[in-house]
């Protein structure tokens, strides 16, 4: 067996994850998406990051 099998398995796993997620998540609307760049958008950063200390604020 070669890495072709394991690499394909990894990609298939990611593809399955995305497809299942899209099917079960809130519908996306590209016309209500945030601006291309956060810098200069005037909007507060709203993503989640591993360094964020969990607080209710």
């Amino acid at each position: 067996m070669t890495r072709r099998v394991t690499a394909t398995a990894a990609l298939a796993l990611v593809a399955a994850l995305v497809l299942l997620d899209v099917a079960g998540s809130a519908p996306m609307n590209p016309f209500q998406a945030p601006p291309l760049l956060a810098l200069g958008s005037g909007e507060a950063a709203g993503g989640a990051h591993c360094a964020a200390l969990p607080t209710a604020d």
């Binding site: 998540s25 809130a26 996306m28 989640a48 607080t55």
Partner: peptide
């Protein structure tokens, strides 16, 4: 159960930065 994470759970992974 924090609001930011509840929102991430509801929204698609295709809108999550990391």
């Amino acid at each position: 159960s924090l609001p930011v994470n509840v929102e991430r759970l509801e929204q698609s992974l295709l809108t999550d930065v990391t």
